[in-house]
Design a protein around this nucleic acid. Sequence first.
DNA 1: ACAGCCATGTAACTTGTTACATGATTTT
DNA 2: AAAATCATGTAACAAGTTACATGGCTGT
Lengths: 199, 199
Amino acid sequence: MTVKHALLALLDKDESYGYQLHGLMESALGDPWSINIGQVYSTLSRLERDGFVEKLPEAELAHDDRTVYSITRRGKSELRRWFREPLSRDDRLRDDVYAKLALSRISRSVSPGEVIQAQRRQLLKELHQLTQLRSSADGPNELPYILLLESAIMHLEADLKWLDLCEQKLEELDATPSPYFESRPRGRPPKDDGSASGA
Amino acid sequence: MTVKHALLALLDKDESYGYQLHGLMESALGDPWSINIGQVYSTLSRLERDGFVEKLPEAELAHDDRTVYSITRRGKSELRRWFREPLSRDDRLRDDVYAKLALSRISRSVSPGEVIQAQRRQLLKELHQLTQLRSSADGPNELPYILLLESAIMHLEADLKWLDLCEQKLEELDATPSPYFESRPRGRPPKDDGSASGA
DNA sequence: ACAGCCATGTAACTTGTTACATGATTTT
DNA sequence: AAAATCATGTAACAAGTTACATGGCTGT
């Protein structure tokens, strides 16, 4: 969803062609956003299919080996729409670490404690890497990159605090026997007729 | 990537069938993780294709209208691997809001200030909703859900702080004229031969 | 009879992603 | 001449998602 709009935004500044757009995108958004060059071309095809960009007529081309695209009125309109519509962070409610933790209490293969510890080690490692990057990347033109690092660091710290909270709550649970985190199947009862069935 | 492992984890506890797994998943992970029932079946097919689950032989079935799956040795092994391998948060470096903000300085359709304000309004709205949910969901069996809310809230707060930081840095920039956030194309210079080309 | 839940699946589509094929031009 | 970069594209696959088709069973 974002590659599409990134290309639109770049084309909104100036018409361009696939290969160049790839470089522009990398310098605009940085390494973490670098994508396979093939994806630029397939995304451009889709944008053209949807009428958001169009190829320049050959007559206007300076080099016949480049396919130059420009943004259309529809494309500009879509871009404005995207810019003005704030991104929902609802997906925060669909966190993978949470899912893994919840599932670890259901499955018998592993304990939540192990999951928490492994995850914490990983987060500390990543946090260390990022803080190092932040202190080394202090050049003049690095502001956007620094803001990105800052964001990632703040979220990693939130993750760590949350893991602490989970650990604490789970300990409280172990004191109070109660079926938290337990699966509560609903719906029609099994109406089992007595034949063989696992566990 | 997570639906797959959620199903494996549920099957690791007990063999089951598509429809029931759908309900189990919802009660184990909550509303935000509820998926279209169709996806359960397609994911089960892939799991079977990859040898992680297998259908029970008909002889062991209590109801011929259900297709009961059980986890295989390979499936258990994959599940353990997934549980033990911590999730990378590298993708924090590929934040959509950051991308939008960076692109808003390149495109002429919108200003970063507008983006920041719209985003902040949205975050405040979502934060308000979640804090209300947290205070109302205080039942006994709600701990996992509360932890999930807590996580989302902490991240929303980080988002808001980060937006403040961005705003502040951008104001500093407007005082110091300098091509921050500007695209710096690299590679072979355009070698333009003088013919028509936009902007 | 009809609504609604139980139950399984397929078709179609979107986005992301990599691997590969192909050839021109430029630099060393 | 060889290596690197420039440049465009296709094929194939993974994962998520919805809409639809199909039927059985259950309660009112």
